[in-house]
Computed example of a mutant assay.
Amino acid sequence: MSFTGNYELESQENYEEFLKAIGLLSAKTDSKVQTEVLQDGNDFTWTQTTPNWTWSNKFTTGQECELLTMTGSKFKAPVSMEGGKISVLFPQYLFTAEMVNDKLVMKCITPGEKGVTFTRVSKRTSDCKTQHA
């Protein structure tokens, strides 16, 4: 199933706990996160937006890619896709995303015994028709 689409936050679990675990509790927002995913084969553009913030990454599954953290720091990591699930090891957490019943399910998992699993479920609001420059 293609990831391409526009998504609106439907539910999330452990949001505050996750932000606290990675030291970004001050970035907490009550705005609904909008996610836009453009997929062309193994190439992705993934953008998340709130009224005061936009975060975007372009990557190719199966390759090491230069990515941005939520704070704008650059890092390199391999991006994999197995069984329809995207996985990327960010500096402070493991990010996974998959389509489940036409919903985008993203998880961010901090390491360690007391690790936090943040889950965000977003419903598809439309298909993407535009490409970003």
Rank of each mutant, 00 (worst) to 15 (best):
residue 26 S to D: 12
residue 117 T to M: 12
residue 90 F to C: 03
residue 79 V to G: 07
residue 132 H to M: 06
residue 127 D to T: 03
residue 96 T to L: 02
residue 43 D to E: 11
residue 121 V to E: 11
residue 9 L to T: 15
residue 32 K to W: 03
residue 117 T to V: 15
residue 61 T to F: 01
residue 91 P to G: 05
residue 47 T to M: 14
residue 83 G to F: 04
residue 32 K to M: 10
residue 10 E to N: 09
residue 52 N to C: 08
residue 123 K to E: 08
residue 51 P to V: 07
residue 92 Q to N: 10
residue 5 G to W: 02
residue 95 F to R: 10
residue 4 T to C: 04
residue 8 E to N: 13
residue 39 Q to I: 01
residue 49 T to Q: 11
residue 62 G to Y: 02
residue 104 L to H: 15
residue 69 T to D: 09
residue 109 I to E: 15
residue 1 M to D: 04
residue 98 E to W: 06
residue 9 L to N: 09
residue 86 I to D: 01
residue 31 S to Q: 13
residue 12 Q to M: 13
residue 73 S to Q: 11
residue 68 L to Y: 13
residue 45 T to Q: 08
residue 19 L to Q: 05
residue 19 L to S: 03
residue 112 G to A: 11
residue 77 A to C: 04
residue 77 A to T: 05
residue 10 E to Q: 14
residue 16 E to M: 07
residue 124 R to N: 07
residue 106 M to D: 09
residue 104 L to I: 05
residue 49 T to H: 01
residue 52 N to E: 14
residue 5 G to H: 05
residue 68 L to I: 01
residue 30 D to S: 15
residue 53 W to D: 09
residue 19 L to C: 03
residue 91 P to A: 05
residue 53 W to T: 08
residue 51 P to E: 03
residue 117 T to G: 08
residue 101 N to Q: 10
residue 55 W to L: 11
residue 48 Q to Y: 04
residue 14 N to T: 01
residue 37 V to E: 08
residue 119 T to W: 11
residue 72 G to A: 07
residue 82 E to L: 08
residue 71 T to F: 11
residue 3 F to Q: 01
residue 108 C to V: 07
residue 38 L to Q: 06
residue 131 Q to N: 09
residue 78 P to G: 03
residue 59 F to G: 04
residue 80 S to Q: 03
residue 103 K to C: 04
residue 125 T to F: 00
residue 18 F to W: 10
residue 76 K to P: 01
residue 122 S to V: 00
residue 93 Y to T: 10
residue 17 E to P: 06
residue 7 Y to V: 00
residue 4 T to V: 04
